[in-house]
Nucleic acid binder design. Sequence first.
DNA 1: CCGGTATATTCCTTGACTGGAATATAAACC
DNA 2: GGTTTATATTCCAGTCAAGGAATATACCGG
Lengths: 110, 110
Amino acid sequence: MVSDAIWAALADPHRRAVLDLLRREGGCTVGRIVDELGASQPATSKHLRVLREAGMVQVHKDAQRRVYTVDPEAVARVDAWLEPYRKLWNESLDALDRHLDTQPGTPKHS
Amino acid sequence: MVSDAIWAALADPHRRAVLDLLRREGGCTVGRIVDELGASQPATSKHLRVLREAGMVQVHKDAQRRVYTVDPEAVARVDAWLEPYRKLWNESLDALDRHLDTQPGTPKHS
DNA sequence: CCGGTATATTCCTTGACTGGAATATAAACC
DNA sequence: GGTTTATATTCCAGTCAAGGAATATACCGG
């Protein structure tokens, strides 16, 4: 199940930007995130706290630095939540296919 | 891209419950949603408005009734956002595999 | 120990979201 | 046309999250 905390964490654009950055970089220090995303250091730390408490990121210490990384497990849970909806999505594609099939001359998508 | 409105809509547990219900039922009237989920009618209408403006549900009229259905397109966009993270997820599974492979005697998951 | 760097936390204010109650709109039925 | 049914909207009060500024904590180098 996806906890409320995960959805709440994802609701903020800045936090999604942090996640995207962490994903692309494979992990970042707080300072790096501040530099890249341009939010203040306290704001960034607070967003990281939310992400951490939602279980979406992990931290490990490197002297004074904290290196944050995405916890793929949390994202996988969101993915699992989407699963039943994916069927809907596929069905609507199928319905489109059938519709196109009944329209001779309409180009079919490959 | 996933609009902020979609993430904001998903942030509310009641709205996710509405989506789940609409998905399972393949569409519902407002009254049905009120009965099933137990929120007040005005609250439900307001949640539906948020979902509608985020493009997550569609409405069609049936006399005085409004039948709401999930718009699979919106969910598909969330799915697409998750895509790059799925790679992380798979990599971490692979890493686990490799780790287990270096631990003779440790049972492997099928 | 001290200054400097890196990060976290607190305090405060402001804006946004939520839900309830009442009311409005719209369509059906008689 | 008036009443009933179905849904939407408005108004309002309470709650909560976000950001800035200042401060605290932790760690390193000398």
